[in-house]
Amino acid sequence: MSDASKEWPLWEVFVRGKGGLSHRHVGSVHAADAKMAVEHARDTYTRRMEGVSLWVVPSAQITASDPGDAAALFEPAEDKIYRHPTFYSIPDHIKHI
C-alpha cells in the first residue's frame, strides 16, 4: 500500500508569462528534487508557450494565512479609502495630476 514518505514531494509551480509580469501560481507537480521539479514544471505547464521563467517551491514550505483570521487581517483595509486616488476630488480642468 501507499506510504506517504515514499511519494515524491509536491511542489508549487509559478510561471512568468512574459517579461515584465510577475510569476503566477499555475499548479503543482511531484518531483524528487528541485531540478526535477523544474523539469516537470516545464514539461507540464509550459507546453503551449505559457511562460519565459519558472519558480518551483516545495508545497510544505509555504506558510499561509489562516482563513479564520481573514476578517482581522484584511477587512481593516476596507475603510482606508484615502489610500486610493479616487478619494480626492480635483477639478477636471487641472491636468497631469
Binding site: 514539461d43 507540464t44 507546453r47
Partner: peptide, 8 residues
C-alpha cells in the same frame, strides 16, 4: 513510471 515522466 510517473505522470510527469509520461509528459516529459
Amino acid at each position: 513510471p510517473a505522470i510527469e515522466i509520461d509528459l516529459s
